[in-house]
Design a protein around this nucleic acid. Structure first.
Lengths: 250, 250
DNA sequence: AACAAGGTTTCACTCTTTGAAACGAGAGGC
DNA sequence: GCCTCTCGTTTCAAAGAGTGAAACCTTGTT
């Protein structure tokens, strides 16, 4: 890939943010590790880290001298969940749906060519789908991925289909067919697409301006969520999604 | 103040982080607002925001076109609470203390010349101290501030006393006396120092290497937490703090 | 239609960032 | 005790990257 839009962004900033993103995989890292991770010279990384540390985005563990995310991140993350965030507003409704169906309920929003699980309530059953909030997942596998693409902007669909995520043309064409099916049915399903033994049903949530803002997903083990069962549950999920859409701000 | 260590940090990165910090006050901001806030030219801010947006740290509300924190922040904040974080490990003990005393319990760590409330469990009483997690507060007022300074590094104490936070020398000297009293007693109290009608008792939490890692505070309305009552509660709080210290990782 | 108020892009100047290399500071090993 | 290896920090010259004024575009308003 070429330099693309070399003028429109600031390289040093992007590099610093790449450093921050290293901490999604590991909680603490040394300078040399970070340097290797992002492929930059030690001195460059050191300078960038000093800037991050100065603003409190990164700190050094007093004992190990290793770098970790700083407390400014705690401060910022506390302000993430504003009252107008779907992840906050829809939580009670998600709990109701969880209690109704007995399975784990998740809420996804799209971010670029990926999706983020911004909220989740776990099933209380012994065998259940565990869904950590904050997880970033691909858009081209899973029920909510299909929903987010099928009911999203046409440009997104083009961009995803033209991207490099497909193992072969067959996979891409199968996905395209599933998109059509999703638009027709109003919901999507997935059987062991991303995790073996796991199944999911997902439906779009539209705000009052008829724009899709999130995907609501119910997921669990395949022996409880058979194809038939998912078809039945879909009605409840779509109804809940409709109700949720009316609760949103804009 | 002069340019200080002009060579050791990266200006563009610091500016970008300043932009991110603007979102602790407001959930969404326009380019012009941000530009005014940080005192930089629109085009500069635009370029920095493009970099932040490209990495997902900032996004634009599709409806209002205004900037907000992006979903990468959700992802990162989900990874903040590692299993070795005091804020996570100590939560059950904090709940026990809350049930024992019936008042709001908070956990603070120092960050620079400030402190962050990294965890809190609210009292269940109708009149109670509300303590949002993530809040950044000054070090020179409040019971936990005194604890964090009194039992912290000597350099920190020097730095704080030499800083510009004091309204007059009398205030600073009173604070120094309270530090001595705190070290002697093993805990600190505050009566309406930061918020009128609020009182607090705080004790240090030391890890097994005898380094102070956090301050444990119990706070409530001044009519329930009289000076006498605080003295009695202090024993429970110090005992809880001691127990908590043994639960920490390093 | 003309205007105003954001937001976006261009462009020349130069200041800032960059990475190699030198320097320090510990931690083991011999 | 000395040497060596590794990791973090600072220095420095070269140039590439960031900066902000200004022009441009887009959208909504009078």
């Amino acid at each position: 890939m070429a330099t693309e839009d070399s003028k429109l962004t600031v390289r040093a900033v992007e590099r610093a943010l790449d450093l921050l993103l290293c901490f999604t995989d590991d909680s603490d890292l040394s300078l040399t590790e970070l340097s290797g991770r992002v492929g930059l010279h030690k001195s460059t990384v050191h300078r960038l880290l000093a800037s991050l540390e100065g603003k409190g985005f990164v700190r050094r563990d007093p004992a190990s001298e290793r770098y970790r995310l700083g407390y400014r991140m705690w401060e910022l993350s506390a302000n993430l969940s504003q009252d107008d965030e779907p992840a906050v507003i829809l939580l009670p409704e998600m709990e109701r749906l969880r209690d109704l169906l007995g399975e784990t309920v998740s809420l996804y929003v799209r971010d670029g060519l990926e999706r983020i699980r911004v909220q989740a309530v776990q099933s209380s059953q012994a065998i259940r789908r565990v869904a950590p909030v904050g997880a970033r997942l691909p858009l081209h596998v899973g029920a909510s991925g299909k929903v987010l693409v099928a009911f999203g902007a046409a440009e997104l669909r083009q961009e995803l289909l033209a991207s490099e995520v497909w193992s072969d043309a067959g996979q891409r064409e199968a996905f395209e067919r599933q998109l059509e099916e999703t638009k027709r049915a109003g919901y999507a399903t997935s059987l062991e697409e991303r995790e073996t033994g796991a199944a999911a049903v997902a439906a779009p949530i539209f705000n009052r301006a008829h724009r899709m803002v999130a995907a609501l997903a119910v997921s669990g083990p395949i022996n409880r969520l058979s194809a038939d069962k998912m078809g039945e549950d879909a009605a409840f999920i779509m109804e809940a999604a409709k109700r949720m859409g009316k609760m949103l701000k804009p």
